[in-house]
Simulated assay, not measured.
Amino acid sequence: MAEAWRGDEIPLKGLLVGHYTDLEAMTGCTVLLLEEGAVAAADVRGAAPGTRETDLLAPENTVERVHALLLTGGSAFGLGAAEGVVRFLWERGRGFPTPAGPVPIVPGAVLYDLGRGAVFRPPGLEAGYAACQGASRRVAEGSVGAGTGALAGGVKGGVGLAGYTLEEGFGVGALAAVNSLGHPFDPLTGRLYAEGLLEEAERALLPDLARYRGRREEYRYPLLLGGNTTLAAVFTDAPLTKAQARRLAIMAQDGIARALRPAHTPLDGDLVFALALGDGRGVGLPLLLRLGAYAADALARAIARAVLLAEGLGFPTYRALAAGEGA
Rank of each mutant, 00 (worst) to 15 (best):
L56V: 15
L69D: 03
G73T: 04
A82H: 05
P99W: 08
A40D: 10
G80D: 15
V106S: 11
G80F: 06
V17C: 07
G78P: 02
G93C: 02
T30K: 03
E35H: 11
R45C: 08
V44K: 12
E36I: 08
L70V: 14
R65Q: 03
V63Y: 10
G28W: 07
R87Q: 15
P49K: 13
T98C: 02
R94P: 02
P59G: 11
H67W: 15
G50D: 10
L15R: 12
K13I: 07
A48C: 03
S75P: 01
R87S: 14
A25K: 00
G7W: 03
G93F: 06
L16N: 06
D22F: 08
A38N: 06
S75H: 01
G37P: 01
E35I: 11
G14Y: 10
S75Q: 10
R92H: 08
A81Q: 02
K13E: 15
L34D: 04
R52H: 02
L89D: 06
K13Y: 12
R92M: 12
E91S: 05
G84Y: 05
G80I: 01
P97A: 05
A41G: 13
I10D: 00
A58E: 15
P102A: 10
R65C: 01
R6M: 15
F96A: 12
A25Q: 00
V86A: 03
G18A: 04
L23I: 04
A41E: 01
E9I: 11
S75R: 00
L16I: 05
G37Y: 05
A81G: 01
K13V: 11
A4F: 13
E53S: 09
E83R: 15
D55I: 10
G93Q: 13
E91H: 08
A68P: 09
V85K: 07
A40H: 10
I10R: 02
T62C: 13
L34G: 01
T27L: 02
A42V: 15
V63R: 07
A40P: 06
T98I: 10
E91F: 09
F77Y: 14
T30E: 00
G95E: 05
W5P: 04
H19T: 07
A58D: 14
T30W: 04
E83H: 13
H67S: 09
G14K: 08
G93A: 11
T98D: 07
T30F: 03
A81M: 04
L23W: 11
E83T: 14
R87Y: 10
L79H: 00
T54Y: 08
D43K: 13
D8R: 14
G46L: 04
V103Q: 14
I105H: 05
E91N: 12
L71V: 12
V66L: 09
W90P: 04
T21A: 00
E24G: 04
C29A: 03
T21W: 02
R92I: 06
L71G: 07
E35Y: 01
L34I: 02
L16A: 12
V39N: 07
L32C: 14
A41Q: 12
G74R: 02
